[in-house]
Design a protein around this nucleic acid. Structure first.
Lengths: 249, 249
DNA sequence: CAATATATTGCTATATTTTGCAATTTTTAT
DNA sequence: ATAAAAATTGCAAAATATAGCAATATATTG
């Protein structure tokens, strides 16, 4: 077997299993552990996998700067993501807001999904590069280097021109009385326009954000169609939201 | 058996099996390993398969994928990049086209440079995320998953609205008579608009691309201000370009 | 058609790369 | 602190690549 072929198999095996040990790979490929070690080093230099002591692990699917934040509440975000993907169907136009919750949803989409994704979030694009049947429309504008999204009037103009079937909205704070609010003014403007231009708005929120408020008002709870959280909601809250016409899960 | 026939069989065999060794192919085609090696090299130069030590492997599912080219001709691109950064000054608005040459220029910029960067290339944004004083404006549009740039009418509209001080143009082919040409129609449209809207156009080209031509016409050589290459140019060529008002280095 | 140029092919000799092994150092776990 | 596991280094044998060359085939030209 030639080296390039080994590299392919190595990459496949490691990304499939998330991790692998030298001994296991050495036996799989019928080469010495030294060779496997060297192969792993080469692949790691290319940024394809990550070399660790005793073997290798798969790269996280999200870009590096995001990894720090991504490790926060991974399990919770995963729960939200699983709830969210059930709403997405082939043929739809789906908008993804910035933020790690929406990113988790993008990452949870099945690889063969056939949708048109609209987003102003670079990490979302990073994820969707490998989805062969997903058309991606990126909303341009000024880059915000903290959130890796675009901002500004061009961004808002572009959002106004697209009517999405579903818009996933990452939420800072949500409260029945004060509605959805954000800490950042520009982000607020973006979200306002996303809400205004979607057929169905799905807000993603970890449970600890429910019942809190921030300075800038995006929209009332009525304007949201679905709220997805990482936990079970008590019946009282559910019916309170239902009174406003909002499905909360 | 003629060469073209061998090439067909080779391509078929390699794409079917994902990879193949020299010996195996040599026996299959009843020619020496040297010939197979040369065949593979030719097919690899055309980007049909990938030549590797000991044989060849099929290209990643998407041909001409950006990631494959990323590490190609690093030294040459570095030479071009060093020539290019000398043209950039603080306070300017600089446009970066897609492609690995322009990417190398972006990567060669000093970390503290204070410019406004406009681009439709995701890799360029990735580089500039870490430049604290560089403002980044991203041109939105439809994502091309091969080049990781945006395309389409929105992209072109946005380009028209920005007048850059300097535009760096990655070049497929450049020829004194036939001008600058590309292989891809949509890419051609983008480049056309970049050239039309820049004060200074700097074309980046590895030396092997000078004197070649592709189907789609972007602009005449006159429209370019500077051509940067990875090698020294003979005096005759220099004066020929100078007659057209083009500085070539 | 002849003769001349060009391209292809397989061979040889000479680099270069890859690989497994052994000796040594570093890291990890107890 | 100590033993075990893993990484690093240097090395030699084997595999593969490169460059030059001669023989042959193919294309071009007048």
């Amino acid at each position: 077997m030639i080296k390039a072929e080994r590299h392919q198999l190595l990459t496949k095996h490691i990304t499939n299993n998330q991790s692998a040990q030298l001994k296991e790979l050495s036996e799989l490929l019928h080469v010495s552990e030294d060779t496997v070690r060297r192969d792993i080093k080469e692949l790691a230099d290319l940024g394809i996998i990550k070399a660790v002591r005793g073997g290798a692990i798969a790269h996280s699917p999200v870009p590096h700067h995001y990894r720090d934040r991504e490790h926060l509440q991974v399990a919770q975000k995963e729960i939200i993501a699983q709830k969210a993907v059930r709403f997405v169907e082939d043929g739809q136009v789906v908008f993804f807001d910035g933020g790690t919750s929406t990113l988790a949803v993008a990452a949870a989409l099945p690889k063969d999904i056939q949708i048109t994704v609209v987003t102003n979030s670079f990490p979302v694009v990073n994820i969707l590069e490998d989805y062969p049947s997903a058309e991606v429309i990126f909303i341009g504008g000024r880059l915000n280097k903290k959130t890796f999204t675009t901002l500004g009037s061009e961004t808002i103009d572009a959002i106004r021109n697209i009517k999405a079937d579903i818009s996933f909205l990452g939420i800072c704070s949500i409260d029945l009385e004060r509605g959805i609010t954000t800490r950042d003014y520009e982000d607020c403007l973006i979200k306002k326009n996303i809400v205004a231009n979607a057929k169905t708005v799905i807000a993603l929120s970890t449970i600890n954000k429910v019942g809190t408020a921030e300075p800038f008002f995006v929209c009332s709870v009525k304007a949201i169609d679905v709220v997805l959280t990482d936990d079970t909601i008590d019946k009282e809250t559910i019916s309170l939201f239902e009174e406003e016409g909002v499905l909360i899960q």
